[in-house]
């Protein structure tokens, strides 16, 4: 979906994490700056503690939609908040987010 001014974009992706679970991402971003406005991470993966997914969504606001930067930021949030993923990882999450741009 593209809105009229062509800057604010909304997109979604479905991505099967290799050896993992099915990730479904809903993304709002600024097409010009390539910054995340809003992110919803859904899917049949496991994350401990469960509330950590909201922390990730919040802390990834304004992150630049670039693979290395996203992986680094996600990895640091995972470490900082002692998040344990099963069926998902930083690379898979970054890939799912970036698939929204395709």
């Amino acid at each position: 979906m593209v809105n009229k001014c062509n800057i604010k974009m909304q997109s979604q992706s479905t991505y099967k994490v290799p050896k993992g679970k099915l990730l479904k991402i809903f993304l709002e971003y600024n097409e010009k700056s390539k910054l995340i406005d809003n992110l919803k991470i859904t899917g049949d993966f496991f994350a401990y503690p469960e509330e950590s997914i909201e922390i990730l969504e919040y802390k990834l606001k304004n992150a630049l939609l670039k693979r290395e930067i996203l992986i680094e930021k996600i990895s640091s949030i995972i470490k900082e908040n002692q998040i344990e993923f099963i069926g998902l990882n930083a690379e898979g999450l970054a890939e799912g987010i970036l698939m929204c741009l395709k």
Binding site: K21, K24, I41, T42, G43, D44, F45, F46, A47
Partner: peptide, 30 residues
């Protein structure tokens, strides 16, 4: 699962028609 989107996963009208309830778990998964 805790992380799933209800409206993306479940046909709420079909549930209503067939008398099937739906609930979000506190656990992940499908």
């Amino acid at each position: 699962g805790y992380f799933q989107s209800l409206k993306e996963e479940v046909d709420l009208d079909a549930c209503k028609n067939l008398g099937v309830d739906y609930v979000r778990r506190i656990t992940g998964g499908g």
